[in-house]
């Protein structure tokens, strides 16, 4: 019995903490960066996202249409890639993203960057 208890506790202590709401860990371009027109915008999250309920939209800071962009997910489900159909024109951009992971909590956020 005491072995079972010790085993269960060790198992739990060795496991990585779970159940955090998904968070944006990193992005390329980074928040606030000024870059050459990127071929893709990559968002990396802390949790595996459900692709059917997660996504992102690209909008221009000046309100003009940003053009179409395709949303893809990396195989591990933790990275979301936004691929513009055409090279981005110079100016400010905002990525409006949303994501749901296993804890069922829907999170949303924005990422801003400038194309030189």
């Amino acid at each position: 019995m005491s072995r079972l208890i010790a085993g269960a506790m060790l198992f739990a202590m060795a496991a990585a903490p779970a159940a955090a709401h998904p968070k944006l860990l990193a992005s390329a371009p980074a928040e606030g960066a000024a870059v050459a027109a990127p071929g893709e915008i990559r968002l990396q999250f802390s949790e595996k996202l459900f692709s059917k309920m997660s996504g992102a939209k690209l909008v221009r800071a000046d309100g003009k249409p940003a053009g179409a962009a395709e949303v893809n997910f990396a195989e591990d489900g933790k990275s979301l890639m936004l691929v513009p159909a055409k090279p981005l024109a110079a100016g400010g951009y905002t990525v409006e993203w949303y994501g749901v992971a296993g804890d069922t909590h829907r999170v949303t956020g924005t990422l801003h960057f400038t194309v030189r």
Binding site: F11, A15, A16, A18, A19, E47, G102, D103, T104
Partner: peptide, 11 residues
């Protein structure tokens, strides 16, 4: 429904 459903793998 909840935290246990969100933990991945063997854990």
């Amino acid at each position: 429904q909840g935290h246990a459903g969100a933990t991945e793998g063997r854990a």
